[in-house]
Every structure is written in structure tokens, then in C-alpha cells.
Design a protein around this nucleic acid. Structure first.
Lengths: 130, 130
DNA sequence: CGTACTGTATCATAACAGTAACACAGTACG
DNA sequence: CGTACTGTGTTACTGTTATGATACAGTACG
């Protein structure tokens, strides 16, 4: 279900976090779905169980997953348990980062607004086509 | 000119990179402007000169600064020495990240397109007001 | 050419991050 | 209640990263 390169420079648990976020974002992992058990996934990826826990726990903190002792890990239902204000604040941080990096790459703020809007709308469009 | 918290969890040189990127993005540091010398800034921030070099060099790699042996460090003129294709590729990576994180926060792709576009246009607007 | 600036390079150290090994605890089910 | 799953917690090892100390080299200028 997931795959990982231990020598990619990027920590294993970060690779997992990215992939799981992506899977939930695209709907490949539905809300309420159960994730592979810590030991099972650790076995598949030939990695220590703690590494899986590390990834799951980070996603729990982000409000995306939920661990139930003795039962397993599940994708949360509610979009996020965070307050709207907090969600918006976190999103704004990413927008600010996009802006600063884009400016550093030489784009004007206007260009960034256009490019970002278009790229995201395009993505929304191809989602609808599925 | 800059400030830094050594115990903030975030490495000192990363804090610097962020601040300098921001300063160039807003125009607080003009193109062609000279930066504080490695030793001077290190003195002000009570930090090792190597730490400043580390930040400067990372920004050089990003195409934002340029160091001249014996003379000092300057903000590059050309927006970026990277090929257009590469600039766009890097920008797309940030947009993708914004998308994945935004989705993880519970926003739809459509919402993200709207919010990002509005936030960036607002920023462009307030730039014009200055 | 010597002084006083600049940046550069090398090496050492201390802290941290990532990963692992292993023991503990809850749930399900026959 | 015991087996076989689940997740949890503690501790330890290891490589990397961030930072620092210190010596080297280029530029400017009188």
C-alpha cells in the first residue's frame, strides 16, 4: 500500500506522513477506513514498528488519524477536529510560505496569485472528471 | 536588522534564511543591496560566524544572494539565475504541498483555490498601497 | 606592504533525530 | 482464560546536524 526508501535522505516516517496525507487527500483512503496495523506495515516495509507509530502519531496530531488502543488506527470522520480559526491559521501559514518562496524564485505577487489559482482550479477540474 | 532565538527549536540558520527571504520578498532588502558582513551579523546576534555563512550560502544556492570573496554578500539583481522551467517546477512543488496540507486540514480543492487566490490578491493589493 | 576589513576552509564538539529492541497493556474471540 | 491480535511506553544506539574555534585567503586603501 505504501512504499519507502530508507536511504532517500528524507526520514522514513516523513515519507509515510506525506503518502498517507496524499492518500486521504485523493480519497484513496476513505474517512473511517482502517489503516494497516503498526506491526503489519512495519513488516511490509521492513522497518521498526516504532517508525510507523511515529508517522501515525504525527497524523493524529494533525487531526487526520485516530488510534484506538487494542483495535487499530482509523482515518477520522470529521474533516478535522481543529477549530475553524486554527485550520485557517495553519492554512495561512502555508500560503505565506508559498508567497515567500515564490517571491524568492522571482515571481511577482500578482503572478503568484494567478499561477496558484490556475494550478489549483485545474486540479479541482481533473478531480471532477474522475 | 534581523533577530534570532537560539532555543526556538528551529535552527538559527533556518530562521535567518526565512527572514532574509522575507526581507527580499517585501523589498526591505533591495536587489543589489549589501548584506551585513558575516562577522558583523554574527557579533550582533551573538552567534558563530559559520552560522551566518551557512544561511548566506543556502540563499546563494537558491539564487537569491551572491558572495564575493573579500568584498561581502549582495542580493542578486536578476530575479533568479534558474531556468524558467526549473523556477516553475519548484513553485509547483510548493503549490502541491499547499494542496496536500490544505486537504489534510479539511478544505476542498475548490475552497483552496479560492482562499489562496484571495489571500494572494489581497497581499498584492496592499503592496500597491504602499 | 601593512592594516583592517571582507569571505573561505577545516576540524572538533555537543545536541538531536531517527531508528531500533523489547517489555507492557488493551481488545477480540473461541 | 488463553491466544493472537491490536496499540503504548521506555530505553538505548547511532548517525547526522547545528554550532563553534581557529586558521587561511582575498580585497581595499593609505
Amino acid at each position: 500500500m505504501f512504499h519507502v526508501r530508507p536511504d532517500s535522505g528524507e526520514p522514513i516516517y516523513v515519507q509515510l506522513v506525506r503518502q498517507i496525507k496524499h492518500a486521504v487527500a485523493t480519497g484513496a483512503l476513505a474517512h473511517g477506513a482502517q489503516l494497516p496495523s503498526v506491526r503489519q506495515l512495519a513488516g511490509e516495509l521492513v522497518v521498526n514498528p516504532n517508525t510507523i507509530v511515529r508517522a501515525y502519531r504525527e497524523l493524529e496530531h494533525a487531526g487526520l488519524l485516530e488510534g484506538v488502543p487494542g483495535r487499530g488506527w482509523y482515518v477520522t470522520y470529521g474533516k478535522s477536529k481543529l477549530r475553524d480559526e486554527e485550520r485557517r491559521r495553519r492554512l495561512q501559514a502555508f500560503i505565506d510560505q508559498l508567497w515567500a518562496e515564490g517571491r524568492a524564485l522571482g515571481y511577482t505577487t500578482d503572478e503568484l496569485a494567478d499561477i496558484a489559482a490556475e494550478a489549483l482550479r485545474e486540479r479541482a477540474e481533473s478531480e471532477r472528471e474522475r
